[in-house]
Design a protein around this nucleic acid. Sequence first.
DNA 1: CGCGAGATTGACTCGGGTCAATAGTAGTGG
DNA 2: CCACTACTATTGACCCGAGTCAATCTCGCG
Lengths: 287, 287
Amino acid sequence: MQSTSTEPRNNQPSTMHSAPSEAGRQRQGRLWSNLREVCDLLHITAAVSVNSEELLFQHVQFKTGQRVHTIGQAFDTLYIVNSGFLKTVLIDEFGNEQVLSFPMKGDMLGVDGIHTRHYASEAVALSDCDLILLPFKKLTALGRVHMELENVMYGVMSRELVREQAMIGMLGALSAEARVARFLVTLADRFAAMGYSSKLFNLRMTRHEIGSYLGLTLETVSRTLSAFNEIGLITVDQRTIGIKDAEALKTLRRLPPSRSRAKQNSAAKQKAEAGQPGDDQVLATTI
Amino acid sequence: MQSTSTEPRNNQPSTMHSAPSEAGRQRQGRLWSNLREVCDLLHITAAVSVNSEELLFQHVQFKTGQRVHTIGQAFDTLYIVNSGFLKTVLIDEFGNEQVLSFPMKGDMLGVDGIHTRHYASEAVALSDCDLILLPFKKLTALGRVHMELENVMYGVMSRELVREQAMIGMLGALSAEARVARFLVTLADRFAAMGYSSKLFNLRMTRHEIGSYLGLTLETVSRTLSAFNEIGLITVDQRTIGIKDAEALKTLRRLPPSRSRAKQNSAAKQKAEAGQPGDDQVLATTI
DNA sequence: CGCGAGATTGACTCGGGTCAATAGTAGTGG
DNA sequence: CCACTACTATTGACCCGAGTCAATCTCGCG
């Protein structure tokens, strides 16, 4: 089914979420997954010994725009994304959204609710989604029997922690161009890991949401994408992104590394390269 | 166990770390803590039933500047801060440090190593420190017997995750003044939770480290502290900070909330308040 | 076919980064 | 005890990256 890419299952409206695609079996008119399928989804290589056809986890579908959980809501279950795209957000005292992540297939939701027993963030479906429910009580009870599970959980939470650390590092140190470049590269890698094309894909989120996620305004995101397009790093058409030079995007550095170049390329080099027939003056500042 | 790490133990000479202060008992010339003491330190209200005088966790001392663990080092143990102050940092491709956190009493270190089995960050002592070792293997083995422990771990990791989410929200949305203000308020609260004064304390980190943590330059941090000092929110003398108006610091908002005031106070209001005998023009822009 | 949400682009402004000079503080050793 | 050095902090001058405001364009949808 997901042959080419870009669109997993065409988003036909209202059709009971079209194809079940991956894991899961019908029962009582619903999809269920066993522990092995859950671990596969998480990319965790835990040797799940059990014949866990007994241990089944229910799926739930959410349609575009629906909230999976909201801030302050009593916590009782974790979610794993089986298909679809979401965003998680914080809401500040003025009602402004701060996007924290864009979960997709294989990601876990709700971990931030464990501590206080209330979700600390809000999760919203950006497309029709299929999520697997992991009732937390059930999960800890299972831990008693299957110790592998405990390590799976530690691994997932630690992974999420590392991801957030990288995010903090990015927000604290990178320029706008570098943030957008990294965002695109990371997205491409995640699509690749899901079996889709990493060279051509559709953004599921608005410029505003990307900006919030990267600590930028939507205008800056838009301008930066246009600039990347002009110098041939990518192609942009609304939400369709084509990656043309992944290497350049990966190595695009920040402007404020410290004291170093930043002055020398401003005037001195400009005239030296008048022989270039191309049109690459747009990002000349970042080299 | 093979220490391998940068700076192992054996540095208890000098002053045997002044006062043992809190938890711990001597044995083999070292300090050890039991499970209850560990949980108390973490502020986790887990009913630790066990008479866990058998389960003892060793302490280790680190002196100012020593590294507890480095990036890429093989992970095998978690740490809990019993006393002292540290920083955790990421190192980018150019050797620049990005400060991620300032762990102090009751905080856990090393969680980011669980996922890949290698520490993802570096932890450095900013003062002489006393840490409790939690060998991860031992910990998971214990989980088999004491289920409370599992929940303690989940709680600590979830708490850390929430903290990092708040950090991301701050870096993505707040102005320099607001970041510094929040930093001070958060520090004050943490000191209060540790039983110290929340009104007068010493920073254990440099302006540079604060700036890195907040995504600012050291100059901006310094200037902002001076500005807060001038309008009477705090007093500053090198690393000694006195909190004068905690409420004002807490409610200091960002400048770029969206579209709203920002223009109307620029010219119109200035002349209307010439009757103010005080000296408060410094931060007039933020109102 | 018009409407509204989203995206693009331009013009302008300013918060905060950069560079630089000065001053306070700590550690070391003669 | 006082230099001598190295590190840290404070301030000022300057300027650029990105935010703000606003106009226009595109596209999907009822």
